[in-house]
């Protein structure tokens, strides 16, 4: 201790402690490694300004960027039985759920809402990869059924954004049964003659791809989104060879006839409105009359490690 520490240190300390530093002020682009400031990143719809990589988007954030003026109202999803199997691996499933709910402020991996896109009424369902890798369990199934039923009741199209590692293993066969359950939801829309537009975002794999995510009337994907059934590692182990560049990416799927379009996030609203209005025999959307982009939301919570079917 001398006079310098006594005199200077408190000042420096207070200088640092007074500044409130948000935890993820900067985000590193997972593709090109560029450090991106959170405000700019949000203003750019979570797309890297250096390489155009489309990063994952939280459900609420997505809804805000999708609807006119960022305005939407949530649609209630019936609560499923909590932890139906009493599942426990290294941790209890109920504890994992509580942790995920606390970290995200969301109930589960899907949000359902209605609002307008370029003055076109739409029901939207958004899967959130940051919630247990967007895995599909009973709640996600209930959400898709609720979305479809609401769309049928109000005669609106359904736009569904997928982002998922697949079925939620911790719900065992009940998660697998969401494949037929969500397919019934799609059938309800088809019977009612309402458009069902799928937007596949990074990443969409496993049982999600093998059910509602591949049954859209129109199949859109975001650039470079990973889309597939089996995981790339599993395939490499099975066939014992390296997979080609771009395998299971949106553009690769487009080339192989599995998608209608690959659409940049900044053009998505307009494209959705244009197509939906044609499918529903409505006049074209009025361009240039769109509401201003929503204010940048707060930085996103970092995704939790993947916990889903391969």
């Amino acid at each position: 201790m001398n006079w310098i520490t006594n005199y200077v240190r408190p000042k420096i300390n207070s200088l640092f402690s007074r500044r409130e530093v948000p935890e993820n002020l900067w985000t590193k682009c997972p593709e090109c490694g560029t450090m991106l400031f959170h405000r700019e990143l949000a203003a750019n719809l979570n797309v890297c300004s250096a390489c155009d990589h489309h990063m994952t988007m939280g459900a609420r954030e997505r809804m805000m960027s999708l609807f006119d003026g960022g305005i939407f109202s949530e649609i209630k999803v019936p609560d499923p039985v909590v932890d139906p199997l009493g599942f426990r691996d290294q941790k209890k499933y109920s504890d994992r759920m509580k942790a995920a709910q606390k970290a995200s402020g969301a109930k589960d991996a899907m949000l359902v809402a209605e609002g307008e896109i370029a003055r076109t009424p739409v029901v939207a369902a958004v899967q959130d990869f940051s919630f247990m890798a967007g895995s599909m369990g009973m709640y996600v199934g209930n959400a898709i059924i609720a979305a479809a039923e609401h769309a049928v009741k109000t005669k609106k199209p359904l736009v569904l954004f997928s982002a998922s590692g697949g079925a939620r293993m911790q719900e065992g066969m009940l998660s697998l049964m969401q494949m037929p359950r969500t397919t019934v939801a799609v059938q309800l829309l088809k019977e009612a003659g309402l458009p069902y537009i799928m937007v596949l975002t990074h990443p969409t794999t496993g049982g999600v791809t093998a059910s509602y995510a591949m049954l859209g009337d129109i199949q859109i994907a975001e650039p470079n989104a990973q889309i597939g059934f089996a995981g790339a590692r599993v395939i490499e182990q099975t066939i014992r060879e390296k997979l080609p560049e771009g395998f299971q990416r949106a553009e690769y799927l487009l080339d192989h006839g599995m998608l209608d379009r690959v659409v940049h996030r900044k053009n998505l609203r307009e494209e959705l409105a244009t197509m939906i209005r044609m499918l529903m025999s409505l006049p074209p959307p009025i361009k240039g009359d769109l509401a201003p982009p929503p204010p940048p939301p707060e930085p996103e919570v970092l995704p939790t490690p993947a916990e889903s079917e391969g």
Partner: peptide, 20 residues
């Protein structure tokens, strides 16, 4: 089957359509 060709020819889509 988790194979390259299976993915390219739409394994997920084929399963989804079969369930449908």
């Amino acid at each position: 089957y988790p194979g390259k060709g299976a993915e390219e020819r739409g394994q997920a889509e084929a399963i989804a359509r079969s369930t449908e």
